[in-house]
Every structure is written in C-alpha cells, then in structure tokens.
Design a protein around this nucleic acid. Structure first.
Length: 438
RNA sequence: GUGACUGUAGCUCAGUUGGUUAGAGCGCCGGACUGUGAAUCCGGAGGUCGCGGGUUCAACCCCCGUCAGUCACCCCA
C-alpha cells in the first residue's frame, strides 16, 4: 500500500498515544529527580569500540545486533544498543567522578538489529539510572526501589526477581561448577544449551527448552558458591529490601546477558507480555568503569523498556475515565469567524494550561457540538450572527449543559479574561466521560 | 538469524469448491431536527484486496518472490 513506510521494527508515535508517552515520561523524570538523579543525554551513536569493550565482545548485542556504519572519515560508528557504556564514557570524558558519587538517569532510544515482534523493536526506548561510587548494598537497593516506585506509581503490583552472580573471584568457580555438572550429561541438553555449555554455561540456567528443565532442577545454585564478600553483600541487599518494604523473590536463573554485571542482578517481570516479559532489568557492575579506562569505581543501574511498560499500561487503562478540559470555540458564519480569530488568539495568550480549540470549517452547530463533546472539551464558546450584532457570546458547560450569555468587550484581552474567569468558576467535573486511552 | 501464522475501507473483521458491479459493524460527512452535544431513521464519501510476477477464459481466493506485522526460539528492554 505504502511505497514509503517506516523501516522494519520502528514505529511512529502520534496522538493520542503520544500524550500517554509524555505523561509517562514526565512521571519517570519526576521520580528520578525525587531520588536525586540528574539527566544525562549522550549522542545516538558512538565509536563502535566503546560497545565492544563495554558490553563484551562475546555478547549477542555486539556479535549480531549492532547498527554499525562507517562514516565519511572512515570511522566505525554504532547506534547505541544500550545506555550504560555511553554513560560511563561521558562520565569519564568529563571527569564527573571527580566530585564523588554520581547519580544519573537517561531516557531515550536504543537501536538493535533484531527480528521485531510486539515488545521487541529495532528502535526502542529506555529509561534507566546509573549510580556510581557506592560499593554498598544501599545503592543496589536504591536503584531497585526507584524502578519499583515507577511501576508502583502506575498501579502495577510487581515484585523484583533477584539473584547474585558473584564477582571476579567467585564467578569463575561457579562457571566451573556448572560446567562440571552439565558436561557429563551433555547429550541430554538441548542443542542450544550444548552450545552455551562451551561458550557461557551461565546461560543454560535461563534456557526454556523443555529437555533442559529436569537437569536444571538439580543444577548447582550460584548463591551456594558465592565467596564470603559476595554472600554478605547479597544478604545485605535482601535485608535492606525488607526494611524498605520492596517485595522480591529469589530467582537463581536470572543471569543477564551483558558481560559487565557483578554481584546483584535483578529483573521486573510482567505476566502480561508473553515471552518478552522483562519490563526492567539491571544490576551491579563494579568492574565496568575501570575496564573503560577510569578509576576503579563501583556502579549499579537498570534499564526499563518504555514500549513494554506502555503495553502493560495500555491493557490496564483501556477503559480509564478522562477528565474534560478546554474551551471549544464555535463560529456560526463568516462574520463570527472573523471576530473570533483574534479572540481565540487572546484566549490562548491568557489561558495558561487550558487548551483552546476552534473549528475553522463551516459545519453546523450540531456537528460542532458533537466534535467538541468527543474531543472531551469542558466548555463551548459560541458566536453567531445574533451574538455578533449584540456583542455577546454564548458560553456552555458541556458537562452540565448549563449555558450563559456574556457580553464581549471590544478589547480582545479583556474579553478573553472574562471568558476565562467564567471557565475557572465552573463546578468541578460533575460527569466523567469514559474513553479508550490506549 | 531459525521455524510458523497473518496482511481486504480510518478501525475491527466477513468474503463460500477461483466466476464477472468486493461487503458488514464502528467511525467520518450530510439530512430528518430552519443555531445545541444522546438515541433513532434515511442518504453519502471512502478500497490499486500489502507490493511484484506467474497459472487461468477468469484470481481477494491457487503458485513463486518480496515487504510488513504477529507468535515461538536464539536473545533481550
């Protein structure tokens, strides 16, 4: 049908959905600010090398999902597939760690070359935070609490799934233990898991293949093999979560796909999303900053998928009631329209947040009322030949159907102020009109 | 990247074993109601049947390719 279409795995956003996105974005920013996080924006593309070193050479993201191109100067650049590595790069480039611990949040697009389906796009949007400079469990819990607050604010009752994958001292031990456990039964594993066994035995843990499930039951658990320091850290995370009342459950099968995670890893999972159930995921990355050339600096953060969150909210809010607001201006006849254009301009100069709309067409009153009603306007201002001659305007409360006639001063701003005073005096919403909010 | 399913009006979908002017509901526009939003009734606009080839006297329907979406896998937000 369309010769020109948005590229595969990308989507346009327009009303009314764009309004829902704006609302979500402002909620998320407000919560981040409340936790003391400031926004960071980084370029949409970076040197390819940053992601190879930051995310890990052997990860799927780097091996097959990056949008990489060569610019006219022969540089290899990549559209950011995730935010953490670019944030660390910017933090180091501008020496932002010089003044101590640092809390940053981001909100914007990421790009991954994937096969699209609902909740998985080639351009997706993520909100996330990074907290640098605190090695203690308090920072892990702060990040989890912030994500929890975002989800809870939107009415989702969720618990965080929690695990610890250890650090550079105990993870190799655990890897080996897994290998020793699975290797003798190699043939019983799914083909994918046989491949994982050599490459990254941890990944076998979140296999969905039915033939793997029985073996997984008895597999050694990461938590049993943590070194004393990591075990202590993990215990403290759990105790602190208890103390602030964030519900969690332990899930030994959460391992995460990026190389840089250490110790705490967590996910918020929704049952509304099919196989792409993770709304938010994150963890601690104590080695990342140093590995990108910075001073040894602990860090913890998460990324939340905006599209996935919107999918859940859309399901829930399908029948949400909407408050009426705004003034729909109606002109009956050419003379009235001519008079109303400057009045509308004056209204908009003086209306603050109240939207003012006008239909420039020549539709009949009934049709204009229907439109105003469906657009969920609170009030209508009507001027026809009679009002024009008398210097009046009819003001109608679309919620109560009550109607007044007021004089219109020749001075537009004075007239506008009178109209807005009438609008401000309207009784609180007597009737809520239900509307699909998706 | 692998496997499968789907693609008909703005939206949700019908469309019989291929048969000539492609339908419905909702929405939109107009009228009944000469300046007032619901409901009802009447009328109207809107479709290169995703796109390109092929088979056939004849294709929305069958075949091939392609694009896009959906589901699962790999993986992941």
């Amino acid at each position: 049908m369309n010769k020109l279409a948005a590229p595969r795995g990308t989507a346009d956003l327009y009303p009314p959905e764009s309004a829902a996105w704006q609302a979500l974005e402002s909620d998320v920013r407000a919560i981040a600010h409340r936790f003391g996080y400031g926004e960071i924006r980084t370029p949409a593309f970076e040197s390819t090398d940053l992601f190879v070193r930051g995310v890990g050479e052997a990860t799927d993201i780097v091996e097959k999902e990056m949008y990489t191109f060569t610019d006219k100067g022969g540089r290899s650049l990549t559209l950011r597939p995730e935010w953490t590595a670019p944030v660390v790069r910017a933090v180091l480039e501008h020496n932002l760690l010089a003044s101590g611990p640092l809390r940053l949040y981001y909100l914007g697009p990421i790009f991954r070359y994937e096969r699209p389906q609902a909740g998985r796009l080639r351009q997706a949007h993520q909100f996330g935070v990074e907290c640098f400079g605190f090695a203690g469990a308090e920072a892990d819990v702060e990040a989890i609490a912030l994500a929890y607050e975002v989800l809870r604010t939107h009415g989702l009752s969720v618990e965080v799934s929690l695990n610890s994958i250890g650090d550079e001292c105990c993870r190799p031990r655990y890897r080996q233990a897994l290998y020793d456990y699975f290797a003798p039964q190699r043939a019983a594993l799914s083909l994918d898991s046989q491949r994982r066994l050599e490459r990254n035995p941890l990944r076998i843990l979140d296999s969905k293949a039915p033939e793997d499930q029985a073996l997984l039951e008895a597999a050694p658990s990461t938590v049993e093999l943590l070194c004393a320091e990591c075990a202590g850290h993990f215990a403290r995370v759990r105790a602190l979560l208890d103390s602030i009342g964030v519900p969690y459950r332990l899930d030994a099968r959460i391992v995460r796909g990026l190389d840089y995670y250490t110790r705490t890893v967590f996910e918020f999972i929704s049952d509304d999303l099919g196989a792409l159930a993770t709304v938010c995921a994150g963890g601690r990355y104590d080695g990342l900053v140093a590995s990108l050339g910075g001073p040894p600096t602990p860090g913890v953060g998460f990324a939340m998928g905006i599209e996935r969150l919107m999918m859940i909210l859309a399901k829930r809010d399908l029948e949400r009631a909407c408050a009426r607001s705004g003034i729909a201006v109606m002109a009956l006849g050419d003379g009235a329209r001519e008079r109303l254009v400057p009045l509308v301009a004056a209204l908009r100069r003086n209306s603050g947040p109240v939207p003012v709309t006008i239909d420039y067409g020549a539709a009949k009153v009934a049709a204009q009322f229907r439109k105003a009603d469906r657009a969920n306007a609170r009030a209508a201002l009507i001027v026809g030949d009679d009002e024009l001659a008398a210097g009046n305007a009819v003001l109608r409360d679309l919620a109560t159907r009550a109607q007044d006639t007021i004089p219109l001063e020749p001075d537009d701003d004075a007239a506008a102020v009178r109209v807005l005073r009438w609008y401000a005096a309207l009784p609180p919403q007597p009737a809520m009109r239900s509307q699909a909010a998706s």
